[in-house]
Design a protein around this nucleic acid. Structure first.
Length: 590
DNA sequence: GCCGTTTTCGGCCCGACTGTTTTCAGTCG
């Protein structure tokens, strides 16, 4: 764990402590915001503390500045220690129980002395929590069910697991009577790598009956448990405990609802701040003039009885606020609203911009398809070039190629390239970056290749200095075109190398080396924030699938999603170059 | 706790649903 993520965890904890203690909610909001910023940041905190720029970080005021400074310098913060020690530590995990919030946790603690999960379970069983003000039998029952739920379901799920379920449900919702359109929203639409739950928004015509629709939704065969159901909203659990929420709005309000439920929360908070500046208000029903909205009659589950400034489409909403349409991937609450106001949003890269894949495997190492099969599949995707980059000799487990086998393979790739019309094959290798940063082949072998992808595979638990020096040394090799999956992380499985990413980016820039966004699940490495930092420094990216099969080539959409979240344009990605431009890029530093 | 082109105090995004209540608090997204 890095310094920034350790600190982020600390601020998250502190926010929870504020909530449980019943402090003014804005204290918790302020600290949560700092935590999220720290999670994302690539700023070097040590440097920021030294030069004082830490105070310029958004949301960081006097109190949190001191906390960060203390923590960076000494590894702890007395202020935080004192705050966190002010409530029993066992209360914090209770926050994860659905339907049990901080107020109730605080109530149980103060009124019944509950200080841990074990005590809570025992108290529930013994009936000790009966008779508290505002807590009835149903509430206690839902807390019991919540505890059972977290015991069986585990946290956030991967994008690739959730996407097919969401697509299937959206199709089913579209087929319901009166539904004119439906889309998934939320973190899935923003293309986050992990998803908490799925939000689906449906626009309906006048013939639709809200309650009948939400009822039909709760009766889909995939649904395992109904959490709630009203006229305009229903929440269910589907397989493996994934929560899916459906929101129903009149079709004229679909755009506003889609915008609202796509989030992110931070984006929407900023957007609504902008609305207030323009004397308007934005909610799931639409954008309204404040003067009219305040006077309008409001009925729960129905749009306010006043014409909206905008509501039909998301584009309408953004346009009415003087903004360019902001693609969902960019709605992160960073600088996207300012960019949209100044008409400076990047023209985000799309799948169709890719002209080739530069990191793929064949049966020569651990792939399942031949050179020819991969070439034909790449051609079918409309590619102009494909690099075959099988493993190097240290990857014994992946049948890595010896020098002799590699040179034969190179000849076979060149021969296939001549034979197959309409696509050019580049003969390459995914060369292991060894523990000390040396490469797995000698320079004179690498010189025989059209392209070299250098990647770390083993020893991924090095400390920051060792790991960073290792990657820097690889970047310094004149034959290296790009660094493959630079950190080696696996989502939800392995943290990967704790790189000083700014140092890696700076060296890549200096040497004209590209950094990969590996599209393979669960890699997605570089991650979005790292790719964003690389772009800010003008480093070229390369989006590759690391395909080990024909189907693997199709996973490019995942890498594109990461690149879009980073704000990448096609011009910053070497896969979007023409073949001659790409060859020039490779040749430039040799 | 943070912040400022209405600024150093007073506001901080908004609504649905549930369960507990007779008008609202808590939770969630």
């Amino acid at each position: 764990m890095s310094l920034a993520s350790d600190l982020a965890a600390l601020f998250h904890t502190a926010a929870a402590v504020f909530e449980i203690k019943g402090e003014p909610v804005f204290k918790a909001i302020a600290f949560s915001k700092i935590a999220r910023i720290l999670e994302d940041t690539t700023v070097d905190l040590r440097r920021a503390v030294e030069d004082g720029s830490i105070a310029k970080m958004e949301g960081v005021g006097k109190s949190s500045r001191k906390i960060i400074e203390d923590f960076v310098r000494t590894g702890r913060s007395p202020d935080m220690d004192e705050l966190i020690a002010s409530i029993p530590g066992g209360l914090l995990p209770l926050r994860n129980i659905p339907s049990l919030g901080p107020k109730t946790i605080g109530l149980f603690w103060k009124e019944r002395g509950i200080t841990s999960m074990g005590e809570l379970v025992a108290a529930l069983d013994a009936g000790k929590l009966d008779g508290l003000k505002g807590i009835g039998p149903k509430k206690l029952q839902s807390i019991k069910e919540g505890i059972a739920m977290i015991e069986q379901a585990g946290g956030r799920r991967g994008l690739v697991d959730v996407l097919p379920i969401a697509l299937r449900l959206v199709e089913q919702v579209r087929a319901l009577p009166g539904v004119k359109q439906a889309e998934y929203a939320g973190s899935l639409r923003r293309w986050q790598e992990t998803i908490g739950d799925v939000d689906i928004v449906a626009g309906v015509d006048n013939s639709a009956k809200g309650e009948a629709l939400t009822k039909a939704f709760t009766e889909f065969s995939i649904v395992e448990k109904v959490l709630g159901q009203g006229d305009t909203k229903a929440s269910v659990l589907v397989e493996s405990g994934l929560q899916v929420d459906l929101r129903i709005v009149p079709n004229d309000h679909f755009g506003a609802a889609l915008q609202y439920f796509t989030g992110s929360k931070e984006h929407n908070v900023k957007l609504r701040g902008l609305c207030l500046d323009q004397e308007m208000t934005l909610n799931e029903w639409g954008l309204y003039k404040l003067s009219e909205y305040d006077k309008a009659k409001k009925v729960t589950g129905k749009p306010p009885a006043v014409p909206a400034v905008a509501s039909k489409t998301e584009t309408d909403v953004y346009k009415a606020l003087g903004l360019q349409f902001i693609p969902p991937e960019l709605r992160q609450g960073k600088d996207e609203i300012e960019l949209a106001a100044n008409k400076k949003l990047p023209k985000l890269i799309e799948v169709k911009d890719l002209r080739g894949d530069l990191h793929t495997h064949t049966t020569a190492s651990d792939g399942t398809a031949s050179i020819e099969e991969m070439a034909e599949a790449a051609k079918a995707l409309g590619y102009e070039f494909l690099a075959i980059t099988d493993h190097s000799k240290s990857q014994v487990i992946a049948n890595g190629l010896s020098k002799e086998r590699l040179l034969k393979h190179v000849a076979a790739i060149r021969k296939a390239s001549d034979k197959i019309k309409g696509i050019t094959l580049l003969a390459g290798s995914e060369v292991d970056i060894l523990v000390d940063g040396r490469l797995d082949f000698e320079d004179e072998v690498l010189a025989e290749l059209d392209i070299v992808v250098a990647s770390p595979h083993a020893s991924l638990k090095q400390d920051e200095k060792t790991a960073t020096d290792r990657i820097l040394r690889a970047i310094d090799n004149r034959y290296v075109t790009l660094i493959g999956h630079p950190t080696g992380r696996l989502i939800n499985k392995r943290a990967g190398l704790p790189l000083d990413i700014n140092a890696v980016i700076a060296r890549a820039k200096q040497n004209g080396v590209a950094l990969e966004i590996n599209s393979g699940w669960p890699r997605l490495d570089l991650r979005d924030s790292h790719a964003r930092a690389a772009l800010a420094e003008g480093v070229m990216l390369s989006i590759n699938t690391d395909a080990h099969s024909i189907d693997g080539l199709g996973e490019r959409y995942l890498g594109i999603g990461v690149a879009r979240r980073a704000g990448a344009e096609a011009k910053s990605v070497i896969n979007c170059m023409s073949l001659s431009e790409l060859r020039a890029f490779i040749a430039k530093r040799r």
